[in-house]
Design a protein around this nucleic acid. Structure first.
Length: 413
RNA sequence: GCCCGGAUGGGGUAGCGGCUAUCCUCUGGGACUGUGGAUCCCAGGAGGCGGGUUCAAAUCCCGCUCCGGGCCCCA
């Protein structure tokens, strides 16, 4: 009986894995260069954690299960909640600000499609403890630098839910539902809903105008006319981004639905990625008090790792590979020579199929090896090894003890 | 959960009611037990699952599973 891979999951071949590691490495290096340090949390948590953050509805989109003691657990659908739980549990007394990054797999029970899988990877950062515009500036600059480093073609949209909320404050409890419509850019639905709850046409137009407020810095002036709000936070943030040469579009329609976002919100969209074009999203939020800690401002983002991998063309650096080929009876020497090569930094591969020399060399060709070291009776008698350059076909004998220096010499050519 | 299109050896395919299921690639062995890429020979390996129609199904019909694209959703 053949077992298939579960729906929405993937297997990765070596070529693809190497590519993913190259990309991952770069993300780590950039995050670490900003002073972020890696943390890791469990693959599953009490499902309550995610319900607290996102509401009961999320249960439908998670892998939820009961363990043998009847605890209700869930595979993590994202990492901001686990990290804030971690922070509240064990890190509340670390000197602020705290800079964490993570690279982990997440799970969501959704219909798979292009750029959307049931198991997927997120690379993200959380900057905890500051409510300054400088914190938002730092994480946006960081995200921008990461995506830029891969030469990706993307757009950065920055919004501010504080402004939006202020404009909608007169709606009371209906405000968050209205924000949902705004987030989706659903003008029709928005209009119908506002009409339904008795909002007059003048106000409806105003809300629509805010939703569609999009462009460069100049739209702040228009925003001020529409909303009575202190825009200085946003202006200071943009000053920093401008001086850091970050290209952005101000877009007050970026709402990122949920209630825990407090101010700046941003999304990065890639071109050519079908329906799932958002490659990074983030903003400032307050979650610590929701998980039983003291109210703590934080800001962060998560990059959809699988999505950027689909857009990036990366190749791993290939290490010099040497096949150690030998005749029957010389296995011990072959293993010893291979070990010596490995300890000098080469990739050394020895036949484990008990095959003929011909097959061993044929295999060397198949795996695209650079050199073959050939061990036969004649060589052994004289204390030699034969080295064959598989690219040129040249072959010559060297003293066994000089094998690594010989290979280094050949590499210099 | 909804809509559209798919599923044939490990990968890529042909056949579209009737021979032992085609071809390429691949994998293992050999020709060739001291030398890779070429050639030749041998071997291996397949119609997603379940039901139905039929004398006969990979082929037609239904259900399910999975894949691709989109909708919903997207913390």
């Amino acid at each position: 009986m053949k077992i298939e891979r579960p729906r929405g999951t993937r297997d990765f071949l070596p070529d693809e894995m190497e590519k993913r590691r190259v990309i991952e490495k770069k993300l780590r290096e950039i995050a670490e260069s900003f002073g972020y340090r890696e943390v890791s949390t469990p693959t599953f948590e009490h499902s309550e954690l995610f319900k607290l953050k996102s509401g009961e509805g999320i249960v439908e989109e998670m892998y939820v299960f009961k363990d043998k003691s009847d605890r209700e657990l869930a595979l993590r659908p994202e990492l901001t909640a686990p990290i804030m739980r971690f922070f509240v549990n064990e890190c509340s007394n670390l000197p602020k600000p705290i800079r964490f990054y993570y690279f982990e797999n997440c799970f969501r029970y959704e219909r798979p499609q292009k750029g959307r899988y049931r198991e997927f990877w997120q690379f993200g950062v959380e900057l905890i403890g500051s409510d300054s515009y400088l914190a938002d500036a730092e994480v946006i600059i960081l995200a921008d630098k990461m995506l830029k480093s891969f030469g990706l073609d993307y757009e950065l949209h920055i919004g501010h839910v504080g402004i939006l909320r202020s404009a909608l404050s007169f709606l009371g409890d209906n405000a968050s539902k209205v924000m949902r419509f705004i987030d989706k850019r659903d003008e029709e639905g928005l209009k119908n809903y506002l009409t339904e709850i008795g909002v007059g046409s003048e106000m409806r137009e105003k809300i629509k105008a805010i939703m569609n407020l999009k462009g460069g810095r100049e739209i702040i002036e228009e925003g001020k006319k529409l909303v009575n709000y202190d825009f200085s936070y946003l202006e200071k943030l943009l000053d920093i981004l401008d001086s850091a040469k970050v290209t952005y579009t101000l877009n007050l329609g970026v709402a990122r639905g949920l209630d825990y976002y407090t101010g700046t919100v941003f999304e990065f969209y890639a071109k050519d990625l079908g329906a799932q074009k958002q490659i990074c999203g983030g903003g400032s939020y307050e979650l610590a008090q929701l998980f039983g800690g003291v109210r703590t401002p934080a800001t962060g983002f998560a990059i959809g790792f699988d999505r950027i991998c689909e857009l990036i063309d990366a190749k791993a650096e290939r290490r010099t590979t040497v096949v150690v080929a030998y005749f029957k009876g010389l296995e011990k020497i072959a293993f010893q020579v291979a070990e010596k090569l490995r300890n000098s930094g080469f990739v050394a591969v020895v036949d484990v199929m008990e095959r003929s020399l011909k097959k061993q060399l044929s295999y060397a060709n198949d795996i695209n090896a650079d050199f073959a070291v050939i061990i036969g009776e004649e060589e052994v008698k004289k204390g030699n090894l034969s080295v064959k350059d598989l690219k040129t076909g040249e072959q010559f004998a060297v003293k066994a003890e000089e094998i690594t220096t010989c290979l280094f010499e050949l590499l210099k050519r």
